[in-house]
Design a protein around this nucleic acid. Structure first.
Lengths: 200, 200, 200, 200
DNA sequence: CAGTAACCGAGACGGTACGTCAAGTCTTAAT
DNA sequence: ATTAAGACTTGACGTACCGTCTCGGTTACTG
C-alpha cells in the first residue's frame, strides 16, 4: 500500500514557513480590513512573501481565505451518535451554531459564500471541498435516523439538509442575526415527528 | 401633506431616457458577462451615457442592478389569502419558486446577495428595500394563520420565515439546484402541524 | 488656410500641467538614477501623476525621454551660412560638440540610441523625429557647398554626413571621450579639399 | 612564472558541454526573439541548464552574448600589411564591412553596444575586451603609415580611428544601411592625402 | 577508498516593474 | 442643472524575470 512513492521531485521544496505566513496574514487581514479590502498584494506584504509565491499555490484570494479558514479556524463539527435522531440533530445544530457565532468564522463564511456566487470556478471548489463534507456529515446522522424509522413522513434527508443549512446560512447572510439556541429548538420541532421527540 | 409641489428646480431635468437605458444595459450585461464582468464603465458604454450620470443617481453598481431587477424583472409575489394556512403557504412558496427558477432572476439575486456580504452599506439597502418587503409579505400570511391558531406549536413566525427564505436562498446560493415542487411539499410538511393539514 | 479647425472634441482636455510634470520628472530621473533605473512607475511617482496618464500619451519610457530631451534640453543647432563650406562645417561641428558636451544631454542621447537598438519600433520614431532633422540640417549646408563646387572630389554629401555624425556618436557611445575642439579641426581637415580651405 | 599551475582544485570540473549549450542557445535566441526578448531564463531553458550555472560563469546576459559572439561568430579581422597605407586601410575597411554585413553579427553588435550604454560595468568590459583589440589592430596599421610618413597632415591616428569606427558603427546603429564598397572608397578618400594615393 | 569540495539540473523564493483594468473624480462644451 | 465625453489619480491585478537560495545528485581531487 501507501502509494505516492514520495516522488522526490528535483528543485527546492515548498516553504512551509511561507505557506503558514500567508494563511496567517489572510486570516488576520480579513478581520482587520474585511473581504473587500483583502488583496493579494496586502497578503504578500503582510506575510513578507512575494506575490508569485501566492499565485503559485492558490488560484485566487478566495482560495487563500478558504485554506486559511480550514487551517487557522477550528471548523470541525463532530458527527453525533446518541441513538436518537432528535438528540443527534440537536447536537449537530448546537455545534454548528457555536461555530457560526464566532465573528471571525461568520465573516469568513460570508465572504466565501459571496465569492462563490461571483467566481463560478471558485464556487465549484467551495462546494466540493467546504460545503459537501459538512453536508455529508449531516447525511450520516440522517441515514442512521432513517434506518431506525425516525424521520418524519414526507421529509426526505435531502430536504432536511436543505432546511438545516439553509436556515443557518440565511441567518448569516440575510438577517445577520447569528443563530441562537431558540432556533435550535424550533428547527428540531420542525424536523422531527411531533409526539415522538419527547417520549416523557 | 402637500406632495412635492413639483419643485421646479432650475436646470435640465433628469433624463428618463438615460435612466432606462442604464437599467436595461445593466440587466442585459449581467446575463452576458456575469456579475464579475459587470462594470460601471461597461454599463455607461452600453447605454450610451456618461459614467457621471450613473454615479449621480446610484451609489454603486449593485444598486443599479438592484434597481434594474426591480424595474425589468417582474418580482411581485402576491400575498395569498385562501383562509387556510397550509394553502397560503403553498401558494406563497409556489409563486416564489416560480420566480427563482427564471435564470436571469436567479443570477441577479445571487449577485445581489453576494455584494451585500462584501459591501456593508449596500447590504443595509438590500435588506431594507429588497429582502424586508418580501419577508413582510410572508409575515402577513403567518399573522393571519397565527390568529386562527393554525401555526404549529413551538414554531414562531420568525423561525418559519427563516426556514422558508433560508431554504430558497440555500438552493440558489449553495446547491445551485433550483427549487422545485417537491421542495414545496416538504416545506409545507415541515411547517404545518401534522394531521391538521390534510383533514382527509 | 489654418487647417485643423480646432476640432472641439468633447470631454476634458489634456492636462498641460501633467504633461510638463512628467517630462520634468523624466529629465531629472535620468540624471539621478540613469536609464537602467528609469521606470514608468518612477516617473509617475515623481511627477505626481498616474501611470495611465503616461501610457495614454507615450508608447514607452524611451518616448517620454525623447520628448523630455526635446522639451527640456535646448537641442537646437543653427544652420550656419557664412558663404564658405569649411567655415559652415566648422560652425556646425562646434555647435554640435557644445551640445554633446553637456552631461545631461550626452547621457540622454546615449540612452535613446541604446533603446533604439533594442526596441525596433522606437528606433523608427527616433530616427524619424530625432536623427533625421539634424541630418537634414547638415544636408542643407552640404548642398550649398556642392552648388558652389566646394565639396572635395570623391566625397558624396551622404558620406560626409555619415562621417560627421558617426564620429560624434562614436565618441559618445564607444570611447566616452566627449568630442573636443581638436576633433573639429581634424574632421574639417578630412572633409575639405586641401589647399582650398585657407586661401590666404 | 608558469601561469595558472593548472591549480588542481578538488570538485567537479566546469562542464564544457553546458558552456557550449549556453552560448549556442544565446546565439540562436538573439536571432529568434531579439535582444529585448533574450532572458537568462530563456537561455537556461533552451540550453537545458540551470540558471545558477549561467550566473556562476557570466555576470549578465550581455556577457553571455558577447562570449557567444566571440565563440560562435568568426569576428577575426586580419591586420593587413601591404606596404601602402591606402591599401592597408582599404583592406581593413573591406574586411570589417564584410563582417558587419552578416545579419547575425550586425544584430549582435547593436545589442552589445546598446547594453554598454545602459549597464556601465558591462560597458567597461565591452570596451576592454571587444572594442579595444579591434582599435588596436587599426592602430598598428596607422603606426606603420605614420612611420613611413603617409598619414595626411592634420590627422592624428586617434582621429582616423574615431572616423573609421565611428562611420561603421553609425551605419549600423543609426541609419541601418549596412556599409558598402562605395563607403570604403569615400573613407579612403577622406583619410588619405590627396594626390598621394594613386601615383598614376 | 572514504571524504569533501565544486559543480550540475531543477525549481521555489522575495522582489521589482510591467502594462492593463476599473474605480471614482474632474473638466469641458452642449442642451 | 444635467448630459455625453473623456482625461485625471489611484490602486490592484496577474505576469515576467531578476538574482538568490535550497534540493538531490554527480564528479573529481585528497588525505
Amino acid at each position: 500500500m501507501s502509494d505516492r512513492p514520495v516522488q522526490p521531485r528535483p528543485g527546492r521544496k515548498r516553504s512551509e514557513e511561507s505557506r503558514l505566513a500567508i494563511l496567517t496574514a489572510a486570516f488576520e487581514l480579513i478581520a482587520e480590513v474585511g473581504y473587500a479590502g483583502l488583496t493579494i498584494e496586502g497578503i504578500a506584504a503582510r506575510s513578507g512573501t512575494g506575490k508569485q509565491t501566492i499565485y503559485r499555490w492558490w488560484p485566487s484570494k478566495a482560495d487563500v481565505l478558504m485554506d486559511a479558514m480550514a487551517t487557522k479556524a477550528e471548523l470541525y463539527v463532530p458527527i453525533p451518535d446518541t441513538g436518537s435522531y432528535a438528540a443527534d440533530l440537536r447536537a449537530f445544530l448546537e455545534a454548528s451554531f457555536t461555530l457560526a457565532r464566532r465573528p471571525a468564522v461568520a465573516d469568513g463564511l460570508r465572504a466565501l459564500m459571496a465569492e462563490a456566487q461571483i467566481d463560478a470556478a471558485f464556487g465549484e471548489r467551495f462546494r466540493a471541498s467546504f460545503l459537501r463534507p459538512r453536508r455529508d456529515a449531516l447525511g450520516i446522522v440522517l441515514e442512521r435516523a432513517r434506518s431506525r424509522g425516525e424521520l418524519p413522513p414526507g421529509l426526505s434527508p435531502g430536504a432536511i439538509a436543505d432546511i438545516v443549512f439553509g436556515t443557518i446560512w440565511y441567518r448569516l447572510l440575510a438577517t445577520r442575526r447569528l443563530p441562537d439556541d431558540r432556533l435550535v429548538e424550533e428547527l428540531v420541532t420542525a424536523l422531527t415527528e411531533p409526539g415522538l421527540e419527547e417520549p416523557s
